[in-house]
Design a protein around this nucleic acid. Sequence first.
DNA 1: TTATATTAGCCAAATATTGTCAAGTCAAAA
DNA 2: TTTTGACTTGACAATATTTGGCTAATATAA
Lengths: 100, 100
Amino acid sequence: MKNIGDTLRALRESKGLLLREVGAELSLDPTLLSKIERNDRMPTKEQVKALSEFYEDKKNEVVIAWLSDKLVYEVQDEDLGLLAMKVAEKKIEYIKTQKS
Amino acid sequence: MKNIGDTLRALRESKGLLLREVGAELSLDPTLLSKIERNDRMPTKEQVKALSEFYEDKKNEVVIAWLSDKLVYEVQDEDLGLLAMKVAEKKIEYIKTQKS
DNA sequence: TTATATTAGCCAAATATTGTCAAGTCAAAA
DNA sequence: TTTTGACTTGACAATATTTGGCTAATATAA
C-alpha cells in the first residue's frame, strides 16, 4: 500500500538501476523521473503505462499505487472524503452491472 | 446516490426556482449552471460550496455527490479502478489515524 | 579534488478547465 | 401563428493547472 513514488523507487533500486538508465529506456528525463519517485510530480497515464511495463512483474502494483494516489489526492482535506469514496465505489459497481 | 447535476437540478426544482434566480443569488451565469445541472461541466470547489450552502438542508448530499462524481471520473475506464479505490480508502483511513 | 547520482528551482510550453456570449430549441401563452 | 420565457447548445476566449526540461545545487564516494 505504498504511494507511487516509493513504489517506483523501490522497484528501480531492487534492480540496481540508475535514474538515467531507466530514463533512457523510457525516454524520460532523469530529473523528471526523480521528481516522480519523490512524489513531487504525478506521472502521466502514458508514463505509468511505460513504467508498469518496464517493471512488468509488478505491473498492477504500479498502476494501483498510481490510481489510488490520485484518488487520495482528489479528496485530501475534505471532511467527507472517505464517505464520498464509499459512495463512488457503489457508483462504479453500479456502472459495471450496466455494462454487462 | 445521484450525480451532482441531477442532485442540483432536483433541489432547484423542488424549490420551484429558475436557473436565473439561483444564478443571481450565487453570481453564477445561468447558462453555466445549466451545464452543471446537466453534468456537462463539473462545478468548482467554490461553486459547490456556494450551492451546498444555498441548499443548506442538503449540504452534505451536494458535496458528496460532487466528490464521488469526481472520484468516479478519475478511474472511469480503468480496469483496476475499483481495486484502486479500495486501496485509496485504506490509505485515507491510515492518514486519519496519523492525524489523531 | 573530481566524478557521478540525485535533487531543487525556475519558467516556458502544453493541456485542461472555465466562463461567456450569441444563437438555438421547445413549449405554453397570447 | 407570433411572442414570450426557460433552458440548452456550440464556439471560443480567458484562466488555471500540469508538465518538461534546463541549469544549478547538493551529496557521496573514489
